[in-house]
Structures are given as C-alpha cells and as structure tokens.
C-alpha cells in the first residue's frame, strides 16, 4: 500500500447505504455522523464493521466550536460516548459555528478570521478536549461568503489553532476547491501554509456548479479538480487516510467503488 497511511481509504457510513458500505471492496475505514448515532447502542451495520476490525471514526457537526457561546458539554459528552462505543482512535468536528443569537443555521458557517475569534475557538476546543478521551481533529469548511476584516490567512488561523490546542487537521480538499472557486482563495498557498504533520485524514466529496457558484453538495460525483487537489496534497505529505463523503442521490455500488478506486489511484501514484 505505497503512499498510504494507517487508515487507508474510507467512506462515510450512512444508514441509506449501510449494506453497500459493508460489501464495497476496498473500504479500510468508515466515518459516522456522531449526532445520528445513539450513545448506548450501535446500528447493526456498524457493529458488523467493528467485528471485522474496520475503524469507525465519529464525525460531529453540531459542537459549534467556533461559536461565541461556551461549548454545549452535553454535545461533547455524546461525542465522547459514541467514541467509546465505536472504540474510535480519534473524533472530529469543524472550524465553524452553527448557533448564534438563539438561531440555528442548519449548516456549517465560517468564523471570522480575527485574533478574538481565534481566542474563543481555542478556549472552546480546549474545553471539548477536556472531556474527550481520544484526539480531536478539526476540519476546514466550504464557505459561500467571507467575513470582512480578516486579520489572519486561513493557513495562519488553522496553524495557530493546532499549535495552541494540539488538535489534528481533517483537511477537506473539496472544501478547499470550493473556496478557491467561490472566494478566490489560493488552495496551494493554503496547503503550503498548513502544518501537514498534524494531518489526521482527508475528506473528498462531490458537488455541482449552480448559477456560477460551486456547491459542495456531497450528492454529485467528485470533480477531477478535487482529485487534482488531493494529488497536490499527496505531493506534500502521505495522508494517514482519505475518506469519500456521499450524503444524497446515492449512485450505484459500482459507481461508488469507482470513486474510491480513483481516490486510491491518486494516493498511490
């Protein structure tokens, strides 16, 4: 398995494709959305995968670690419980907020890249880590808008976050591609500026262009440009794992297998 780390190639487990994930060839690990699991029992399909020894990584979407409010510790406790249940080597969430002013955005929102926002994020991450029993990795998100008055580049912001909290990085190359396309960010400058020795694993996903805007839908095929960006990442570091996220409009098993194979080909080359 030249060029591939300890996790290998994985796919996001979803209840709609549970049997597919079980029988797909070449699935070395899976990820589960932590909020979709009960804290005291696993879905049968996840139990099957665990019995086989397939690593299961809980991925949270609701901690709102970049939010102004102190972390909701019940949500962190849930993530910790799911990690125990799956015997997970690590857990993850995003560099984002989802709640503010009494409202829930329903999707991952970017945080302002200011010193103050970074201080709040670091405090929230440290609070979450005090409850979690396994390492926490944080993911860069796709944003459709930019906050004004950024004081730090995304690379600097994420680097300081990892230095001050010891968290790992979950690098989503599809999100990097989306920000390059929609916000004019430079993905190679971001790759060059990130502490890649902190890389936990990588996300790859598909999307679609609507009205000139690239939407990271997780419901369309992975564009070649995203695979190319994965290649640029692999030129710099051998990723411990690469995981395909697909959340809707599920294609045939063979189409999913082909996407996993395409990812494997990039990592191996």
């Amino acid at each position: 398995m030249g060029g591939m780390g300890e996790l290998g190639i994985g796919i996001g487990w979803r209840s709609e494709i549970d049997l597919t994930v079980e029988r797909l060839p070449g699935v070395d690990f899976v990820e589960v959305v932590a909020e979709n699991l009960h804290r005291d029992h696993l879905p049968d399909s996840i139990a099957v995968l665990r019995e086989r020894g397939t690593p299961v990584l809980p991925h949270a979407v609701s901690l709102s670690l970049g939010g102004a409010d102190p972390v909701d510790m019940d949500r962190v406790e849930h993530l910790a419980a799911v990690a125990r249940l799956t015997d997970a080597p690590l857990v993850s969430d995003h560099v984002c907020f989802v709640r503010a002013g009494g409202l829930d955005s329903g999707h991952l929102m970017p945080v302002p890249r200011t010193r103050e926002a970074l201080d709040v994020l670091v405090a929230n991450v440290l609070a979450a880590q005090s409850v979690l029993e396994v390492p926490l990795a944080l993911e860069n998100i796709a944003a459709l808008l930019s906050w004004p008055d950024a004081e730090l580049t995304e690379a600097r912001f994420l680097t300081e976050l990892t230095e001050r909290t010891g968290c790992g990085l979950l690098i989503d190359v599809a999100n990097m591609w989306a920000n390059a396309r929609n916000l004019g960010e430079d993905p190679e400058a971001l790759l060059d500026g990130l502490p890649l020795e902190r890389l936990a694993y990588v996300h790859v996903a598909g999307g679609v262009v609507r009205d000139g805007v690239y939407h990271d839908t997780h419901a369309h095929p992975v564009p070649q440009e995203v695979l190319d960006l994965l290649g640029l990442l692999c030129d710099r570091v051998s990723p411990p794992g690469v995981l395909l996220e697909r959340d809707d409009h599920y294609p045939s098993d063979s189409a999913l297998a082909a996407e996993l194979e395409a990812i494997r080909a990039v990592v191996r080359r």
């Binding site: 939010g67 102004a68 409010d69 102190p70 907020f97 503010a100 002013g101 009494g102 409202l103 955005s105 929102m109 945080v111 302002p112 103050e116 926002a117 201080d119 709040v120 906050w147």
Partner: peptide
C-alpha cells in the same frame, strides 16, 4: 471577546 463575537455572529444569522 465572546460578547463581540456573539454580536457579529448573531447579526449574520439574523
């Protein structure tokens, strides 16, 4: 810092 960030994030979500 939390109060100022809360005001910014709240205004954006509203």
């Amino acid at each position: 810092a939390r109060e100022r960030l809360a005001a910014q994030q709240s205004a954006l979500l509203h």
